[in-house]
Design a protein around this nucleic acid. Structure first.
Lengths: 213, 213
DNA sequence: TCAACAGTCAATAATTCAATTGAATAATTG
DNA sequence: CAATTATTCAATTGAATTATTGACTGTTGA
């Protein structure tokens, strides 16, 4: 019994350790956006392929991701939904820690909550703007979202109607792309709010997504 | 911006790393049962005081616990409720991983779900049995629970009425004390079920507890 | 079949971490 | 104020992790 207890602690510690290196957290967050081959993940994380491969294998050993060969590539994807919840729990923990510091950020931009957003997606009474890179958008997105990656937004902002409210989102609450977008939108006189939880928060809540085209 | 993203990953990794050693996970689980001074925690975890102190400081640095001097002792307690959620997320993750292996355990004992348990606590139509050690019971327990630590249960089982259903619980889903209890209860012909989530699951859901006497 | 490509493996050197020891600090007691 | 108790700090040792390198395995397509 004592043995079985301590095995539990070892197992939890094993998962903790897997999340105990920033590169692995980053890789995991990238995988949340959609399964991808090692080389692409390495690129996105600015790691050598070998290094990324090894980190990915650690995530796999911890049971957080799984891999599957497809042609000459190996695709890594999330093992299951509980991993999303785990990541979310980490983020909540950290957010709690900086309630005061966050006042800046939280109070300066207007935000929209999930319930209202769901209603207004159905109504089509808003423009839903996804500012993540194209490939992440292609992997999956909120229903009806339009994609203008943040680097292109300044140039392409005229594509967005001036008198409809814009809701911007990006990867999730840890991601600041949509905050950048808010600045641009507000600067052009558009009414805009941020959906803080982003793509990963949407998925975490089991809500429907669109993928491919 | 890239900088701010990577700080997020560092922070998450910092928390992950704090949970990356079995002793720290154990200490944290002990603290969930109630705040305690260093020496007691060290004892319970079978660590030297100095070693426990250092692990506790790491948990503190990661923002998972806080400490407060009280006389000549220093009491460590959980920082906030989000830490409970985090621990819970870890456990869910691991449970998911061994759905097949768990079939044994899950299907052999009868369980009761939170909603029914809440109703029947109000009704007083069950005996709610807490089999954790006395000190943990004293720190906090489900409303109306009676405490018979597992080591004493065989001797004291006659204290429990024979014709009322007994619900046994212990620390949480990772803890097997209540499974031991079920065996004893069933062996004496008592009808019994297990409340799997236990004390920590109850707290995680923000439900009311009793403390002290 | 052979070259190329995508990923993994094995060996290494640098860094970081864990547990132990004994000394230092802080609050309490006589 | 000295002695005691509870905790922390600092220094050491041995063990574990990390990133890098280059060799190695499969898979595809010429």
């Amino acid at each position: 019994m004592a043995q079985s207890r301590s095995r539990k602690f070892d197992e939890i510690a094993g998962v903790g350790r897997a999340l105990g290196h920033p590169h692995r957290v980053l890789l995991l967050e990238l995988i949340v956006q959609g399964g991808r081959p090692v080389e692409r993940l390495a690129q996105l994380a600015s790691l050598s392929t070998a290094n990324a491969s090894q980190h990915l294998q650690q995530l796999k050993r911890a049971g957080l991701v799984e891999s599957q060969r497809s042609g000459k590539q190996v695709i890594y994807r999330l093992k299951d939904e509980t991993v999303l919840h785990l990541l979310h729990a980490f983020q909540n923990c950290l957010e709690q820690q900086r309630v005061e510091i966050d006042v800046d950020r939280k109070e300066r931009v207007e935000i929209i909550f999930r319930e209202e957003l769901m209603r207004r997606i159905r109504n089509r009474s808003i423009i839903l703007l996804d500012v993540r890179p194209e490939d992440e958008f292609a992997q999956g997105r909120l229903p009806g979202a339009v994609n203008i990656p943040i680097e292109q937004l300044a140039k392409r902002i005229r594509e967005l109607p001036k008198h409809k409210e814009v809701i911007a989102y990006c990867r999730g609450s840890y991601c600041v792309l949509s905050l950048e977008a808010m600045k641009l939108l507000n600067a052009t006189g558009r009414r805009s709010r941020q959906f803080v939880e982003g793509y990963s928060g949407w998925r975490t809540n089991g809500l429907p997504i669109e993928a491919l085209v």
